[in-house]
């Protein structure tokens, strides 16, 4: 089960059969085009980063993948199925789970209730949910300590952990992470990124969207540069880190 965070190491990231295949995807808010003609693929076991500045369309892209934002053109296929027009709850059930930008935990509910709601689509499989919840608590011991506390009273870093834990309870076959480093202190960013690497090591396929390009490309296998709604460049992450244009525009040296 690739979604189990305690499962075997990731299969090799090869081309060929893509878990997620996006072709010519566009989305717009009214007449304003947010993303345009995006081609993108993620294979099972990969950790792929999408980096770009503010307003480049990163969040719109993720929201379109998870069904929160309608696509105006193009096609998204997941595990061979066309999911372009699926409603969000079906996409979650299929295994695409999103960690939203800015955490967005259910503040007035307890940590435990947040996690249980993360497993809403898996609610009939209580045995798996129980195990997975324990795994999340092992991954983030602080959440276990605060399981009865209201999510809104957690610190930003803890809320980010809760948001990731909540998504993990959705049994992700593909985990979408939207700006997990946003607003966190450098030490916490390091901690969160360490967990992302660990999850990927345990077989979770991850699509990571980040403004913090250096940190994201440092852990990703491949990367896409998103500029004003279009893919400007794609390459193995190491190449992007060494690329002069990318360095000047996104890494600041």
């Amino acid at each position: 089960m690739p979604s189990e965070i305690s499962s075997a190491p990731a299969p090799p990231a090869a081309g060929g059969d893509r878990l997620l295949e996006v072709i010519g995807l566009s989305s717009q808010y009214g007449p304003v085009r947010a993303i345009h003609q995006i081609d993108l693929g993620v294979s099972a076991g990969e950790l792929v980063a999408i980096v770009g500045g503010n307003g480049a369309g990163k969040t719109t892209l993720l929201h379109t993948l998870s069904g929160l934002q309608p696509a105006s053109a193009g096609r998204i296929s997941f595990d061979g199925q066309d999911i372009t027009r699926w409603p969000p709850h079906r996409i979650v059930a299929a295994g695409i789970c999103q960690v939203l930008e800015g955490r967005q935990v259910f503040a007035p509910l307890t940590v435990e209730d947040n996690l249980r709601l993360g497993g809403y689509r898996q609610r009939r499989d209580s045995a798996w949910l129980g195990q997975q919840q324990e795994r999340v608590y092992t991954l983030f011991p602080i959440l276990a300590e605060r399981r009865r506390q209201l999510a809104g009273t957690l610190s930003g870093g803890q809320q980010q952990m809760l948001a990731i834990g909540r998504a993990l309870l959705g049994r992700p076959r593909l985990l979408l992470l939207d700006e997990p480093s946003m607003g966190l202190a450098p030490l916490l960013v390091e901690e969160i990124f360490r967990v992302i690497v660990e999850l990927n090591g345990r077989g979770v396929t991850i699509l990571l969207v980040e403004q913090n390009a250096r940190a994201a490309l440092a852990i990703a296998g491949r990367g896409y540069i998103l500029e004003t709604g279009r893919i400007a460049k794609t390459a193995p992450a190491a190449e992007l880190l060494a690329d002069d244009d990318v360095r000047r525009a996104y890494l600041g040296y």
Binding site: L100, F106, Y120, A167
Partner: peptide
């Protein structure tokens, strides 16, 4: 009620 987007994101219809 608390957060509609997040509710959708966890798969609540």
């Amino acid at each position: 009620a608390f957060n509609r987007t997040a509710a959708q994101a966890v798969g609540i219809n």
